[in-house]
């Protein structure tokens, strides 16, 4: 029990950074994917200077940062990239708000930034509620997936198996695994976008008795 607690604590506490060429190589190999994620979050073309800057910053944080992923590097690194890109979007939004008022504000202090971070609408009460609803929809979508599709997703994300390993485990061709994973993702994307579809539907005029 105590050993398990220590093990958990180890994953939470930042580890000292030591040069790790293998990890750095893995990060470098993921650069195109990181750039694609950054471009997608920023909604900019892949050759936009901001995309390059944010990609560079994400990779720098990954390599020079104090923490290392305990599992596969890919989801962790993409998470870092998403975070850095979202930071840039928030900074852009702040700049726009300041200059739209006409008078630039004084430089932001650390406490102001902290308050902004706390007040980030991504973590507000309404957003939390929406997130809970969204999650419930995704859970329902996952529950009604065909067995093979759900198993493929669970083995890939839950156990971290590669497609070839999943194919061997489920005794199906590699192409089938790739198709199952793609379909499962589509179902999750549909569940996540249900809210947008519902909100874009025209509302019925209220009838008065």
């Amino acid at each position: 029990m105590l050993a398990a607690l220590f093990e958990k604590a180890e994953t939470l506490v930042a580890r000292p950074v030591t040069p790790d060429p293998a990890f750095e190589g893995e990060v470098a190999a993921l650069r195109p994917l990181v750039r694609a994620v950054v471009a997608s979050v920023l909604r900019e073309p892949h050759d936009h200077p901001d995309v390059e800057d944010v990609t560079q910053e994400a990779l720098r944080r990954a390599v020079e940062g104090k923490s290392r992923p305990t599992g596969p590097a890919r989801p962790w690194l993409l998470g870092v990239a998403r975070h850095v890109a979202l930071d840039l979007i928030r900074a852009r939004r702040r700049d726009r708000a300041r200059f739209e008022d006409g008078v630039p504000d004084a430089p932001e202090s650390a406490s102001t930034l902290l308050i902004e971070r706390i007040a980030d609408p991504g973590h507000g009460a309404v957003e939390s509620l929406l997130e809970t609803e969204r999650r419930a929809r995704v859970m329902r979508a996952l529950a009604i997936l065909p067995e093979g599709t759900r198993s493929a997703l669970e083995l890939f994300h839950g156990e971290g198996l590669a497609y070839a390993q999943i194919a061997a485990r489920l005794e199906v061709p590699l192409g089938t695994v790739a198709t199952w994973v793609t379909r499962g993702r589509k179902a999750i994307a549909d569940a996540l976008s249900e809210e947008d579809a519902a909100s874009s539907k025209p509302t019925e005029p209220r009838r008065t008795p």
């Binding site: 994917l33 694609a36 994620v37 950054v38 471009a39 997608s40 979050v41 073309p45 892949h46 989801p75 993409l78 998470g79 998403r82 999650r135 995704v138 859970m139 996952l142 997703l153 669970e154 994300h157 839950g158 499962g184 993702r185 999750i188 994307a189 996540l192």
Partner: peptide
């Protein structure tokens, strides 16, 4: 552009499947 969306969806799906 589609690759970026697919990677974001992969990231999100991983979080959802872990929760599931």
């Amino acid at each position: 552009g589609h690759l970026g969306n697919a990677a974001l969806l992969s990231l999100r799906a991983g979080e959802e499947v872990a929760h599931h």
